[in-house]
Structure formats: structure tokens, C-alpha cells
Design a protein around this nucleic acid. Sequence first.
DNA 1: TGACGATAATTGGTACAACCAATATAACTT
DNA 2: AAGTTATATTGGTTGTACCAATTATCGTCA
Lengths: 245, 245
Amino acid sequence: MTEQSQSTTLEQETETNDNSVSTVRAYEDVIAKIRKLISDEDMGPGDALPSERRLSDLFSVSRHSVREAIRVLQEQGVLAPKRGSGNYIRSSTREELTRALSSLVSGDARRLFEVFQLRELIEPQITALAAEMILPEQLAEMDQLLRTQMTTEDLSELQKIDRSFHALIAKATGNTLLSDLMDKISASIDPSRTEGHQSEERRVASITGHCRILAALQAHEPDAAAEAMRDHINDIKHAVSPDTP
Amino acid sequence: MTEQSQSTTLEQETETNDNSVSTVRAYEDVIAKIRKLISDEDMGPGDALPSERRLSDLFSVSRHSVREAIRVLQEQGVLAPKRGSGNYIRSSTREELTRALSSLVSGDARRLFEVFQLRELIEPQITALAAEMILPEQLAEMDQLLRTQMTTEDLSELQKIDRSFHALIAKATGNTLLSDLMDKISASIDPSRTEGHQSEERRVASITGHCRILAALQAHEPDAAAEAMRDHINDIKHAVSPDTP
DNA sequence: TGACGATAATTGGTACAACCAATATAACTT
DNA sequence: AAGTTATATTGGTTGTACCAATTATCGTCA
């Protein structure tokens, strides 16, 4: 057994991620990486994951952390462990859905309007649901994220924050399908959001919108949250493509 | 140093009809024991669980198994770990929601619930949009489809009709992304629960729901259409998995 | 040659021991 | 009494070893 050459827990920050506060547990990272592995490697139902030992080596974490991640994935119905054999991807409606979705939103140009229309339909609803389900520490995390947004100048960083904000809301619903779906949608919009519309005015508008949404979430008011999100998305849409109703 | 004297956990005499691997995992036992501990000890929100080491000693399992159980419990919203302090019982609102709705049992029910939750969020909105956009010939097509549904007995045919009905609505929005998305969602639900809810009563209920929806579409009334679809989906959900709110 | 059975390698399941970092508590200093 | 510093406790992570179920491999026998 090759002894790992990793001296300590030197967490090389895979990506300039996150806004400090939230204690990043290793297993959460592993969950994301396994999901990414599945979609990147184009693995489908019935396929076997690499062994736990291989995964722990691949991700440079302990097998224990890998197993914690697999436990969660199993509990979510994504994986089915088979002792002595491997961890298998379940014939999961969810995985098939998310996989299909990622290919759906791959288009561009004319589809931009359609993606925004989808967002307009679904995100206010998600936000309303989140207003009922969100947990105190998730509210705290969003609050922290918003504060960071207010004091950040870097555009790419702001973009990341914005995306995290919307991702956190979806996650707060407790529905992993919704969370994944929003992730795909955000990913498909991101590239187009890069271009030019990042004026100071836009930044202020974004913060204002987020404030309204967060306030509604903190108050646990679904209707207000949905409306705030609706306005926010409409706002974004106009910024991206000015000549739409 | 007394080596663990537990070789007793290997009773495999339970030849349960269980289709999957029968082996009982330790962490599942621990989950049950922790839940029992909470209710027996009458612990409420905010209280701290015994430490992981104490629990592992108490249950005569490794800390790893305890931690896997706690991971799951945490993911279900029952516990909130605080490093350096302890595992705390969360305010119960979230748990009641998730428990009652999804994570009570296996991942299957949860997946199904998540898909339905997505449908509940998105399909009424789609229907409302369709009420504004739908064309006369599309209305005629749906009308024809509904008449066919009324005079068809074949189950697989009825299923196909039902799916077409929902697909037509999505198509009527003119948004191909929405249309494709609904198609994938329908496809992901179809295979899972084809049987079970196909009584005569269900058939009538389905037709009734479709009638209401179509009427609202014909009248171009978005709100009524959305509400009709909401009720319809709720109806389906109850038929597929009873005892959900 | 082909079928069969023992053997070895791989894999998930569990256990134990150690360490880190955050937290809480006790002890100490001022 | 208040603030500061040790110290013990706790969750988070890692490493290692072993077991049991499964799979792959190989050798023997008919």
C-alpha cells in the first residue's frame, strides 16, 4: 500500500472559493467531486465508481472522508454500495435528469432568452420554498456572502459570489434535484454574464436585489421572497439583454 | 486492552424478502439508536448529543460508524455539528418537513418526491405561460387528445396520452428549453411507477384534471390554468405516493 | 478441451489509534 | 473581578489493520 506522500492537511484551495465563514468539511468537497466525476466521465446507471481507496488517493483525502461522502450519496439514492464489489450508480431518475439537463442548456445565443424564461419561472418558486426551509446557519452564510459582495471590487469574484448566492438558495430548499438544476442553469448563463454589463450601477442593483431577497428569507415570507427574486431576475435579464419586455 | 468482543452482529438468519443486499450496516443501527436516545431521553432542540466517543462506547461500535450515522442525520437536518463543542439537535421544523416528505425511508421515495416537487414548482408556471401563448390549432390538438383519452382503455396507451398532454402544454409556451425539460422530467417518472395508480378512479380523476386545465387554456386564463395544473399534479402525487401532504 | 473448485486479489464494512483545530473550562496572573 | 493562559473536551481528519463478501485467477480433474 503506497503510503501517501501528503504531509499535512494542506488544502491547496482548489479554487479561490469561498467566503471564509462556512467550515468546509472534506466530505462535502468529495460529494461535489464525485458528482463531477460521474458527469465528466459520462457514467450512467449501473456503472461502478472507482474503489474507495482509489477515490481517496485521487482526491487526496482519507478513505474515511470518501466514505462519509458515499454515505450521503447513498442516502440520497445516487449510489448503491455492494460489499466486495463496488459502489454502483443507481438507475436514478435524478441522475438521468441532471445529466440530460446539462446537455439541454449547453446551447447559446438564442437560447439565452429561453434560459432566462426558465429562471423566471423556477427561481421565484425555489426562493419561496427556501423561505420556508432555510436554516439559521444558511441564513448566516448568505449574510456573510452579501457582506463580501459589498466590499469586493474584482469582477470575476463578484460573479462567483452572485452565483453562490443563487446556489445557496436552491440548496436551502433541501431538494438536491433543484439544487443541481439551478447549478446547471447558472453555469449556462455565466459565460454570457461576463461581458460588459458590470457597471457600478449594476453592482449596486445586484446588491439591492440580494438584500431584498435575503430579508424575505430571514423573515420566512415565501411570497415576498418569490417577488423579490422575480424582480431581481427581471433586473438581470434587462442588464444582459436590454431590449426585452 | 480488551479487543472488541463483538462478533455477534452477524446474524444473517433474516432471509427477508429484501431484494437488495441484506447485510445490515452498523451506521443504520446507530441512526435508529440515536433517534431512540433523543426521544427516550426527551431531548429537545438545542440540546447537545453525547460526544461521538461516548456514543461509540455506549453503542459498542467504532467512532467511524457513529460519525457516518451523524453525517446522515446532519444531512437530514436532524443534527447540527459544532466542531469543538458537540452535536446539537436542530429546531425541529426542518426535520419534520423533510422527514414527513422524503427521507423517511429509502432513497427511492426521496428521489420521487424531489421530482414531484420540481414538477409542482415548474408545471403550473409553464401552464400559466402556455395559457397566454397557446395557438388555436394547439388547443384543437389537445382537445382531440382529451377525447381520445376518454375513449381509451389500454393502460400503456393512456400513459402515452397523459405524457403527450403535458408535453403539448410545454410546447405551447414556444420555449424549446421548457419543452425539452418537461419531456425529460416526464420520461424520468414514467418508468418508475407505471403501475399502481391505474384504477378506474384514477383514470376519471386524470380526465377531470385535464379538462379543467384545457378549459383554462382555452379561456387564456393563466392563473386558473396554473391552479388547475397544481391541483392535477398534487392529485397525481397522492396517487403515486400516498401519505404526503 | 471444458467444467469445476480451490486460491488469490479486490472491495466495501468495521475497528482502533493518533493528531489537528476549534471550543469550553479551569487555573492562574494582574 | 477581569483578563490571560493552560488544559481538557469535542468534532474533523488521517492512517492502518483486519474482516467478509465478491470477483478474478488458476490449476486440477473428468
